[in-house]
Design a binder for these strands. Structure first.
Lengths: 239, 239
DNA sequence: GAGCCACTGACACACTTTGCGACAAAACAC
DNA sequence: GTGTTTTGTCGCAAAGTGTGTCAGTGGCTC
């Protein structure tokens, strides 16, 4: 996680979403809102989120079901929002694996304290080694050795990757054939948002292409999406 | 932790203590009671406790102070009991590192759910390989003899480690494939925080590399994560 | 197709971070 | 006390990364 943790707020009420997002942003967090479980899943596909704040009661798929996914698939801390007094919800929420809950209406400072506490706990404990921490991933003629942070061809040539190149490549490999904007790539690789004239992603892509593309002038693995960022077109498979 | 987690209940009110202990015992836990911080410390000396439930307000040393000790010295999950509505207490409690809190009067089933959630969380995380407790740890071509504080190769060559090198290596071995910042490493090896221009970790890493790396110029075991610290890429196993 | 504009690729350069040798301070052994 | 080992600090060189510029390209309108 980087200096500014990224919080995902999921609530069907626009008022609460906006209020929370603004409040979190003025207190040192990046915040993104989703109006329901579907939107939340969409955002999770292309953004790196450090913690989620979920409303329990939402039309359609409810917060509990989403919470289960977040915990099991993304290993992500979750704080639930619940109407005051609904003890059953709280209990079920905790049993479902939420890290904390807070009753509505809530004291914003208390929410901040809880977010801080949950994040601190998540970071102080060793993170569960993620798939990308141990696997080897094959794509085209390359095998990415994630432990050694280097690329190897089948004939044994090893190409070391810098930290930035490695993070960028992982971001692509985990989202093949999905077009990613510069903002999303910046979020995924560095957990920050773009300056108005940010060219760092262009540069990072350029440098990565020089290492993995047969002919960097005619890239085949990382294609440019005009006015839309980049897309990785390879077929990564665990190896 | 054994099949029956052992809960320590600390509260100055005898009624609440007895109620809690009995309730926990009928729900699959072992439970021990203490009427104050002093008694709690005494019990901790001779019992293995998996989780503590602390009253915030107690005569003498209060729950917050005890909580701090438990977290820092015993690395133990803590749930705080607080009078309903005392939001300040809750917030301070969370900031103090409590894993959860519950307001009095509480629904016993809710307390059970919270205990279950906190214990599950504590266990779901990869158990810290208590490297320092194990006699010997093997990684790559080395075997670390923690008693002798030296490294041995399979062909019998022994390399002695200084105290600092040993602590650093242990910190890495307990968290393989996890990127650690200089701050974290400084905290883990010396329990202090970094000065603005602190280069001591860089040096410690450099010195450790010279001892354990085949080719210190191209380190394979301890990789640099640019602007992010270092990561140990080996596969330590108890031996 | 020509002209226009926004966007991108490539590069140079500045800046930040890191590696490591040298030295000094501190800790330790005797 | 002295001598030895260990550890922190400083300085410089090297590596990694972000910014600014400029030329070139894609997409649009006419």
């Amino acid at each position: 996680m980087t200096a500014q943790p990224h919080i995902l707020v999921v609530d069907d009420s626009r008022d609460i979403r906006d209020l929370l997002v603004r409040y979190l942003q003025t207190h040192g967090y990046r915040a993104t809102a989703a109006d329901g479980a579907a939107a939340a899943r969409r955002i999770l596909k292309t953004n790196s989120i450090d913690l989620a704040v979920l409303d329990v009661m939402m039309p359609g798929e409810d917060g509990l079901s989403l919470c289960r996914t977040l915990r099991s698939e993304h290993d992500m801390p979750v704080i639930m929002l619940t109407a005051r007094g609904e003890e059953i919800d709280r209990i079920v929420g905790l049993e479902m694996g939420a890290d904390d809950y807070i009753g509505k209406p809530f004291n914003p400072r208390e929410l901040l304290a809880r977010i801080g506490a949950v994040l601190r706990r998540a970071n102080s404990l060793p993170r569960k080694a993620r798939a990308s921490d141990t696997k080897r991933i094959r794509f085209e003629k390359w095998v990415l050795d994630t432990a050694q942070r280097e690329l190897v061809t089948s004939d044994g040539v090893a190409v070391p990757l810098s930290a930035g190149e490695f993070r960028l490549l992982i971001a692509f490999l985990e989202r093949p054939k999905i077009s990613l904007t510069r903002d999303q790539l910046l979020d995924l690789t560095q957990g920050r948002t773009a300056d108005p004239f940010d060219r760092s992603i262009d540069n990072a892509v350029s440098r990565l292409r020089r290492k993995i593309e047969e002919d960097p002038k005619n890239p085949r693995l990382i294609k440019t999406v005009w006015a839309g960022g980049y897309v990785f077109t390879g077929d990564p498979v665990a190896a």
